[in-house]
Design a binder for these strands. Sequence first.
DNA 1: TATGGTTGTCTATATCAATAGACATTTTAA
DNA 2: TTAAAATGTCTATTGATATAGACAACCATA
Lengths: 251, 251
Amino acid sequence: MAGRGGMAGLKQVQRQTGVALWRQIADRIREAISTGAYDETGMVPPETMLALQFGVNRHTVRSALAALAQEGIVRAVQGRGTLIERKERLNFPITRRTRFTAGIGDQAREMRGLLLDEAKEEASAEIARWLGLKPGEQVIRLETLRQADKRPVSRATSWFPAKRFAGIGAAYRAGESITKAFAELGLPDYVRATTEVTAAHASAADMADLELTPGAILLIAKAMNTDLEGMPVQYSISRFAADRVQFTIEN
Amino acid sequence: MAGRGGMAGLKQVQRQTGVALWRQIADRIREAISTGAYDETGMVPPETMLALQFGVNRHTVRSALAALAQEGIVRAVQGRGTLIERKERLNFPITRRTRFTAGIGDQAREMRGLLLDEAKEEASAEIARWLGLKPGEQVIRLETLRQADKRPVSRATSWFPAKRFAGIGAAYRAGESITKAFAELGLPDYVRATTEVTAAHASAADMADLELTPGAILLIAKAMNTDLEGMPVQYSISRFAADRVQFTIEN
DNA sequence: TATGGTTGTCTATATCAATAGACATTTTAA
DNA sequence: TTAAAATGTCTATTGATATAGACAACCATA
């Protein structure tokens, strides 16, 4: 028995599906780069070889490579080939002590957390349930963008009980981290209680914030943090650029 | 301050991106259905309204709805509207005692696990590392397809130490579950050690197995299970149809 | 310096995606 | 019975996608 699993064999791209061939090919090459398939040479195979491999015209491959060059992943050099510029995928551990900045701190030189927006609002039924509040109680919502080495990694919306964490927006803007903002407001430690992970296509807003192209994938983590007594302190929905991260769960 | 977060505002679909408008719209509507946006009526808004909302021609919306009908998510009825047929998303808890069948057992009537292929092979460096073997030692690889109510949910490739689990293919085929197969072979209990989660576009093979369309998203879980002494017993790569599942991590 | 291998550019053609408009068909409700 | 609202079908046109071929420009190396 054999024939399934692993090996290519099947046609790798499909026509008439609403997704252009050049985009399907770009997605496959991006994936191959991030898994280290071309590490030996540091280059993508020649256009003619890729065209043969995917069963398309060389021009179609060129469209795919142009898109990847636009993303800054490869750089074509006439006469030599197409060089790989960037291939990282940040690992993001999800544990009881999950922290964004510390979690990937050693995998990137510069971590930043930008506050895009802050608002005080009434808790919806869902937010209230997660934070252990009554619907309509005041919560503070923060819209944040997290970057690693100037490259956007995730876009998060977080809610906090307004009474307990007044001023968390300013604290976040100053420290660029939830952990530091909590510490500033008198909460030295907290733990991750639950995390729900899904995946979806990027919306237009996420494309803009995370510098993605249509068809791009998001890993979505809905998380609830509590203080050490088990009282909810934060509920957040984080949208990660899926080709830049992986989650690790250690049990 | 306001304006970000939540509300639409921006153009929801983009042109000249390699992803056809009708597919982008289909993805948005599928997502809206699964989050319960149309639960009040049980129907999708009229085609003319969707066309207005997305800023496209009615025919383009019709292409999107035709694709969703093809997937069995909606059903158009002339004169009435477009009815929502299915909107479930299975929850899959990832804990120390993660088991596929038990995990979603109460969310579906009929759970099945089909053995697609079985092979004995030499462990690659990566597989050997995960299973605590020397590269080249014999392992058994199982290719399985898991279904909930006859709908494919995930496609998994699993490796087991060949010496300890000879005959696991037959045991899986009989019991349609890893847990039962392990029990059959004298391992009554085991635990999930680590799980890595990523997302990617579906390959052609996955599209076929999971009945997906191009552009569809996979949630990929790479998991290692051990026996109660901490000895690795299984390494697996499971590819889930992202629009049918969510993962939950309880810390 | 010559050659082979590679990316860059151009022209031409066929197919798919998207818009536009008109009208038919079916259901629901006035 | 009628009208309104919804999906179904058809024709026509435009722009994006994909193929095909030819050749130029550039790089590394023999």
